[in-house]
Structures are given as structure tokens and as C-alpha cells.
Design a protein around this nucleic acid. Structure first.
Length: 355
DNA sequence: AACCCTTTGAAGGGG
DNA sequence: CCCCTTCAAAGGGTT
């Protein structure tokens, strides 16, 4: 039987997605105790400020993060005990009751398939932010399409694309390795996947959603401009979401609702804390989902590399320059700036649940 | 308009 | 192998 997970070993070299928890039960306990309580949120809010005040160079901070990651990595074997959700190789939405399995709307004309509606507003309408992951439930690779060896790349058939369409939140068309560039461009022109379903993993180079703007613009612009726009633009295949990103997608709306926050930076800090407060089982489901997503991504885009989406060398230079400025604590993103942004003197502005 | 901020995790490259 | 960098999402804020 075909298996997405090559039975124990991760053929994609991603058996490390099951990041285990620290052994320090105290630490974990401590984190969990502080989770989801109002005091936690208050603590977070104040820490959001105080943490940014710590005069620590970005490099030091990063090092600290990596150290922590390494510690987590030391406990992966614990999570390996978490029961895998496989059913003879057929991926059946492993987590019954998982909210994103509820709605087919992502494929509706005005559903979350359109980028703006895939955001919070969608959730507020009763949609789950992870709805785009719905196709997981339908993913039923046949032996022909799904190699038993997850690392097998050549000869992967593209029929799967229909089943996994909607994995990502920015559907914009589809490109498949078995297609040539001409057909790719045609698909992108129409904004559609060859199967007829937009694929969110692929976005235009701009990264923005344009949808039906194209056709209209053709008539409003000069011939040269129209021609230029008609030229195929190389689409961007986005990275598969990791466990935390999947978690964020699901929980973002909840945090926004609870805290009446909208600024993603602050929301993400809360989500980061909550992530650490999750039990290993709770985290495991997201690691599992992320692993499946990576596997599917590899099978869909065998030649794709994360490097493909890296910014140019010029962009790197630009960033290094920026980082240098940060070290002087006067540049963008400096503690000083962060204090201002998060309002050190405006803590009363925090909403109730987050106070 | 483009970039920043903020989080964790994955991936890739350099030493 | 270790370390560092980049990018995934998100949307208000900043330049």
C-alpha cells in the first residue's frame, strides 16, 4: 500500500518535524500553567514590551532561539510515541473534529479561495482559517500516483493536484512539473489550476492576488502594456507551511477575537506563547499535518527548492544593512521603536482578555 | 508600493 | 556538524 509516511523513517528527511518537548517538566508545566489565562495575556502584553526593551543584539537573540530549538530537538523521541494517523497509507484527516475539515467553501466562487476572504473575515463568518486544508481529507493517492517511497520524485503524476488544491491560503493557479511553461502560463493567465481549481501554493511574482483584474485591465491599458502583462510571469511556489504556521492559521482568528488585536506582530507573539503551552499531543497533530504537507509539496513540485524563493543577493545585502542599523538600536525594528509601537505607556489600551 | 514587525519550523549553504 | 539566513502567514504600521 502506498504510504505518505514511509513507515517510521521519513523519506523526505523530515522525521524531525516531531519536535519533542523539553525534559524539564517544570518548564513545560510552567508554560502550560500560564497558558490561556487572562493573566497570561497580561503577562504577555507586558513582556511584549519588556522583552523588546532588553538590549540584546539580534544575533544574541537568534542564538538564544536556536539554543531553545536545539533543546526541543533533543526530545523528539518523545513525540515519536505519538500515534500516527495513517490508514493503510491513505491519508484520512487524522484529527477527527479538526475544524478545517468542515467546509467546502474554499472552492466556491466567492469563498475563501479568493485571497482577501481567506483572511480573518472569512473566519468571522463561521469559516475556519484552516479550511484550505480541507483537501487533506480527500487526499487518497492511488498506488500509481503516490510512491511508497516518499523520496521518490521522478514520474510523479499530477492528478494529485486536484486533491490537494487549496492547501495554501493564496490560490492563484497551478503549475505542475509535468507541464511545460507554456501551459503554465496559460493556467496562470486564467488564474486557474489545470484541473480547474486554483492552487494557493502558487502565486504571481508580485505575491498579490489579482484575479479577474487581469482581463479588465487588458482593455484599459495600452497595447504594449497589455502585451507585457500577457507575457508569462514565472509563478512562485510557496513553501509548505510548518507546524507552527498551521497552528497560527487556525488560532489567529481566535486570538483576534479574544484580544481585539489586529496587529499580526503582537498576535504572533501571543500565538508563539500558546504554541509552547500546547501539550505534546496537541502540537503533534500540527507536526503531523506539516509533515504531510511537506510530503505532498515534494511530490507536487519535485524540483522545487526553498532556495527558489530566496531574495536576490541584492536583497540580502539590503537586509544585512538593515540588521546593522538595528544593532545601533536606532534603525527600524529597534527596541526603541518597538516600545513605541507596542505602547509602553499605553498599556491601558490593551483589551480585557489581553490585559 | 514596498517593507517592517513577530512568531516557529524547515531548508539550504558556508565554514 | 554547527551556525546562519531566508521564508512560509498575517495585517497593521512605517517609510
Amino acid at each position: 500500500m502506498p504510504q505518505l509516511n514511509g513507515g517510521g523513517g521519513d523519506d523526505l528527511g523530515a522525521n524531525d518535524e516531531m519536535i519533542a518537548f523539553k525534559d524539564e517538566g517544570d518548564h513545560e508545566e510552567k508554560i502550560r500553567e500560564s497558558a490561556f489565562t487572562e493573566s497570561d495575556l497580561a503577562d504577555l502584553k507586558s513582556s511584549l514590551v519588556s522583552e523588546t526593551e532588553i538590549s540584546q543584539s539580534p544575533a544574541v537573540i537568534r542564538r538564544g532561539q536556536q539554543d531553545e530549538q536545539r533543546i526541543y530537538s533533543d526530545k523528539r523521541e518523545h513525540l515519536d510515541d505519538v500515534p500516527k494517523h495513517h490508514d493503510g497509507g491513505m491519508y484520512k484527516a487524522p484529527y477527527s473534529g479538526y475544524p478545517f475539515l468542515m467546509l467546502p467553501e474554499p472552492y466556491l466562487p466567492n469563498g475563501p479561495v479568493s485571497p482577501p476572504s481567506n483572511k480573518v473575515s472569512v473566519v468571522q463568518q463561521g469559516m475556519h482559517p484552516l479550511t484550505p486544508l480541507l483537501p487533506y481529507e480527500h487526499f487518497n493517492p492511488s498506488p500509481t500516483h503516490m510512491p511508497t517511497d516518499g523520496g521518490q520524485k521522478p514520474g510523479v503524476h499530477r492528478h494529485q493536484t486536484q486533491e490537494i488544491s487549496g492547501f495554501y491560503s493564496l490560490p492563484q493557479g497551478q503549475i505542475t512539473p509535468s507541464m511545460n511553461w507554456f501551459s503554465h502560463s496559460l493556467m496562470l493567465q486564467s488564474g486557474m489550476h489545470p484541473t480547474g481549481i486554483p492552487h494557493p501554493a502558487i502565486v504571481p511574482p508580485s505575491g498579490k492576488q489579482e484575479h479577474d483584474q487581469f482581463d479588465r485591465s487588458i482593455y484599459n491599458k495600452s497595447h504594449a502594456e497589455a502585451k507585457r502583462e500577457k507575457e508569462p510571469k514565472k509563478p512562485v511556489i510557496k513553501k509548505p507551511l510548518n507546524a507552527f504556521m498551521l497552528y497560527m492559521k487556525e488560532m489567529r482568528a481566535k486570538v483576534i477575537a479574544e484580544c481585539t488585536l489586529k496587529e499580526s506582530a503582537a498576535i504572533n507573539q501571543i500565538l508563539g506563547r500558546r504554541w509552547h503551552a500546547l501539550t505534546r499531543e496537541e502540537q503533534a497533530k500540527y507536526y503531523e499535518l506539516a509533515r504531510k504537507e511537506r510530503q505532498l509539496h515534494v511530490q507536487l513540485y519535485p524540483s522545487w527548492s526553498a532556495r527558489d524563493n530566496y531574495v536576490s543577493a541584492l536583497g540580502k545585502k539590503k537586509r544585512r544593512k538593515r540588521d546593522k542599523q538595528q544593532d545601533s538600536s536606532t534603525g527600524p525594528g529597534s527596541p526603541k521603536k518597538c516600545r513605541a509601537r507596542f505602547g509602553l505607556n499605553q498599556q491601558t489600551d490593551w483589551c480585557g482578555p489581553c490585559r
